[in-house]
Simulated assay, not measured.
Amino acid sequence: MDISGTLYSVFGVSEPLFLALEALVALLLAVSLSATVLETVRIYREYSVKEEPEEAEEEPEKTMLMPGEAGKIDLTKLGQAAPQKPAGPAKPSVIVTPPPAAPAIEVVKGTLPESIKALTAKYGLDWLTISSGDGLVIASTSKTPDEDAAVYSNLFYELHRARAETYFNVSNKNIHLLQVESGGHKVIDVAGRAGQMTQAEVSGLREDTRMVVERFLWAAKAQR
């Protein structure tokens, strides 16, 4: 029997080329099957291994950005007392000096002219005119007493009708007008002085005028 017959009886083919092709196909099938088996084993091992728990990430420190501030505030320290800032140097205290009181001058002198001069000096007046309610001069240290009494007594009553007060500062003329009442009689002080008069000065001038008027005017009328 020749070689062709032998090949045909063993492999079912008589040509060597066909035999080689069948052998190659068989080899490829074997390799493919082996690769499939290996891949199946790898996948099985991969999914059969237990997953190790991941380590918990450390929680970051709780901080909060405050609007308008570049720094951060630790939330864990909220509720704690804030550190005290060192006290700065004490501010010097301001001492308010009250206006000087009128000097203690006895205004009731031996005569009415002397008494009104004492009134003028005690309250730092440029001049003083005491006028009756109808604009007549009672006493004065002014150079124009009749004009002062007539004009400013009338002005006082005009202001008094608009505002029921007993003292007015006519600042544009440096004139102070105040009403003095004693024993049912009313007189007007017309005082020339720049600037303001304190409430104490107004009250003092009113009281001193009342004493002078009672001493020289009403007492003299009572003796008649």
Rank of each mutant, 00 (worst) to 15 (best):
E158H: 14
L21A: 08
G12Q: 05
L155F: 02
E165M: 05
D189I: 06
K186L: 09
I130T: 13
L27R: 13
A87P: 14
V10W: 06
F18G: 05
D74S: 15
K91T: 03
T144A: 03
T166C: 01
R206H: 11
P92G: 05
Y157E: 02
M1Y: 06
N174D: 08
V41M: 12
E59A: 06
F11G: 01
G184Y: 12
A70C: 08
P113D: 09
T166G: 04
S203V: 06
G184K: 11
G192Y: 03
M66N: 02
G79C: 08
V41A: 10
A101Q: 14
Y167Q: 04
K72C: 00
V107H: 01
V137S: 04
L33W: 15
S182E: 05
R161D: 06
Y8V: 02
T111V: 11
L128Y: 02
E51H: 08
D126T: 10
T141H: 07
V137R: 02
D126G: 11
E46F: 10
E59W: 01
A162L: 05
T129D: 00
E207W: 07
T6D: 07
S32Q: 14
E181S: 15
E54I: 14
K143F: 03
T141Q: 00
D126H: 04
T209F: 01
V108I: 11
V202W: 14
I138C: 10
S9E: 12
A118H: 12
W127L: 06
E214K: 15
M1E: 15
V13D: 08
V10F: 03
L119A: 09
L178E: 08
G204D: 07
A35S: 12
Y47S: 02
A150H: 14
I130M: 13
K91G: 08
K77C: 00
N172F: 00
E158G: 09
N172E: 03
G68A: 09
E69Y: 14
P113G: 04
G204W: 03
T129I: 03
W218C: 01
P100W: 00
